[in-house]
């Protein structure tokens, strides 16, 4: 499964420009599902038909990044954030554009307190020395993402954009395993989650499932002096109780708990006080769709080196397979 994760994490897909990820998933699942379609926002919807209940499983394809808003005389690029970026976390990071151009994020050095650093005092250096040279490499509006690789080490994965290619990998793996069930399953790879849970809303409106799950990442409380959170790496996928966008519907939550217990799959409860997930927008679509979530405990979310545990990932696949049966 690591091969699959590695491939997905390597695809380029900032919010609003998820085509590479979408094409990759399409090529893998082409003959494994009954129908594949795409909607106006770029959501990829893969359907395994069935006569029973409709389940929607949503994992967002998009990743955080930067967008070029201005190119100056000397060839430096100014940028805006796509999704949640902290200046101190992106400082000194390498980024890569769709066409392969690489840049590094740096800052105006006349600042006296690095804590006060803001994005509009930062720039991307692609090594150009004039506007003309820069414009030959990058256009206004081009987007870049972290340039970093994906490593498997002692059962853990260290990689960029585990948020949320890990969710995509889980759904792809599940579709490949093709769990036996009468139910109709919608594997939905959503667009533009990081900028406001946008894709999931239109996708859900088109499907109107009986129940929906967002498959995403969640923070942990197991790093030194971290904010308190009862989630640990390696202790099982989490069953979402609440995040900033949703309180899980009791029917969804209870079904997950019951299935995890009966199949002896380890799980943890997730209450994420920051950040939302696609569940938040699905939940209030079309008069209300009972929604919840399964998440992979992830350290250092939104950095270029997020860490997840393969065991949690594999258990998440198993839990979801039991959930839809």
């Amino acid at each position: 499964m690591f091969e699959l994760i590695n491939k997905l994490a390597g695809a380029y897909g900032p919010s609003g420009n998820e085509k590479q990820v979408s094409a990759l998933i399409r090529s893998i699942l082409k003959d494994k599902v009954d129908e594949i379609r795409e909607d106006a926002l770029g959501n990829l919807i893969c359907v395994k038909k069935g006569s029973g209940k409709k389940f929607m499983l949503a994992a967002h394809m998009d990743q955080i990044g930067v967008i070029v808003t201005f190119i100056d005389d000397k060839g430096f690029l100014r940028f805006g954030n796509i999704g949640g970026l902290r200046p101190q976390v992106i400082l000194g990071q390498r980024v890569v554009f769709e066409n392969g151009t690489t840049g590094v994020i740096w800052y105006e050095e006349n600042i006296d307190d690095i804590k006060k650093l803001k994005l509009d005092k930062m720039y991307i250096d692609i090594g150009a020395t004039s506007r003309e040279e820069a414009e030959g490499m990058v256009k206004l509006g081009d987007q870049a993402v972290y340039a970093a690789d994906t490593k498997l080490q002692n059962g853990k994965i260290i990689s960029k954009c585990m948020d949320n290619r890990i969710g995509c990998a889980i759904l792809v793996q599940m579709a490949l395993n093709s769990p036996k069930t009468e139910n109709e399953i919608y594997y939905v790879f959503t667009a533009q989650e990081e900028v406001g849970l946008r894709g999931a809303r239109t996708a859900a409106f088109g499907i109107v499932p009986d129940m929906a799950l967002a498959v995403d990442v969640t923070g942990t409380g197991d790093t030194p002096e971290s904010k308190p959170m009862a989630v640990r790496l390696g202790a099982g996928p989490t069953i979402k109780i609440k995040d900033a966008s949703v309180i899980s519907h009791p029917a969804v939550k209870d079904r997950l708990i019951e299935r995890a217990k009966s199949a002896n799959i380890p799980y943890q409860f997730e209450i994420m006080t920051f950040g939302g997930t696609d569940a938040g927008s699905i939940h209030i679509t079309a008069g209300g769709i009972p929604s919840g979530g399964v998440s992979v405990p992830t350290r250092h979310i939104h950095s270029s080196a997020e860490i997840v545990d393969m065991k949690d990932v594999e258990n998440a696949v198993e839990l979801l397979e039991h959930f839809v049966k």
Binding site: L41, R198, G199, T202, A203, F205
Partner: peptide
């Protein structure tokens, strides 16, 4: 408008 129904370009 983009978020309307099944989505709008």
């Amino acid at each position: 408008i983009q978020a309307n129904a099944e989505g709008v370009k």
